[in-house]
Design a binder for these strands. Structure first.
Ligand SMILES: [Zn+2]
Ligand SMILES: [Zn+2]
Ligand SMILES: [Zn+2]
Ligand SMILES: [Zn+2]
Lengths: 139, 139
DNA sequence: CTTGACCTTGGAGTTAGGTCTAAGCTTTAG
DNA sequence: CTAAAGCTTAGACCTAACTCCAAGGTCAAG
């Protein structure tokens, strides 16, 4: 049974973060001592590791809460549910990547067009491209 | 000279957004009428289009403010400045893409491993992978 | 016994980019 | 003339995931 500071240190988090996870319904420590201190056991630590692994693949805390509730009563849920959550997240991530790839290619084009020298920016092609009424230039 | 609603409609924004841009120092309309109504002229609209183009390549409002201040007094700035801002943004975007690509491949692996069927989730390989003390499984 | 580290709570603050509300003018259409 | 639409302001609210603070209780070491 670890107190919050030890538990946090073991997992590389701050105590505040564990309190925040508790308030969010993600991880309620299994017990308290007489003084009201939170006490975390091995199962709590396993659950926290689940949370951290889920975070590391990009799930939001809300999605993790869903996954945890499925895990808790897995017999009453089907395989389709975690898969759906995963596939929806995958789609979001892919959409975001596509958006950022467009940013990247536009930025690369802007950067390439600019000499980057020390002379006046009054002819800078980055500023000109952003000013252009001709929208072709950016995409 | 357009009032705020017309200006917003012309650019596909809400009036609130224009007020927000003004409060942020991005776009202060060139005049007001006797009643205190904001009046935007063609130069204001050009500036707003600069802002929108800069947004469309991924610049934050803060970065756009910098670019605008360079644009305003371009003679006193060098080409190196817009290029530096652009290259820093490019690096941020590339870092974010890399992070999301790791998410994507992990999520794809999770999704592929799960049957997605209607039977019980108690053997679901997504939940198992997130539970695994073996960290290899996720990356 | 006291000092300092650790814990409790509720609640506020952070970032970014808006979005909305309320109370009260102004303008415009019928 | 009147009603509706549009404008003004200050300031609150939104998301996400924390992060920090204050005031006070607990606990271990010296
Ligand atoms: Zn140049
Ligand atoms: Zn340049
Ligand atoms: Zn299955
Ligand atoms: Zn499954």
């Amino acid at each position: 049974m670890y107190r919050i500071g030890v538990m946090a240190a073991r997992c590389g988090l701050k105590a505040d973060t564990l309190r925040f996870y508790e308030k969010s319904g993600l991880l309620v420590p299994s017990s308290r001592n007489e003084a009201g201190y939170r006490l975390y056991n091995a199962a709590d630590e396993a659950k926290l590791n689940f949370i951290l692994r889920a975070k590391s693949v990009g799930f939001s805390l809300e999605e993790i809460a869903e996954l945890l509730s499925i895990r808790l009563e897995s017999a009453e849920h089907s395989c389709a549910e975690p898969k759906l959550i995963t596939d929806m997240k995958l789609q979001q991530v892919e959409a975001k990547i596509k958006e950022l790839e467009i940013f990247r290619s536009s930025l690369q084009k802007l950067s390439d067009s600019c000499c980057g020298g020390s002379e006046s920016a009054s002819h800078c092609s980055i500023l000109e491209a952003l000013d252009a009424s001709d929208k072709e230039a950016l995409c």
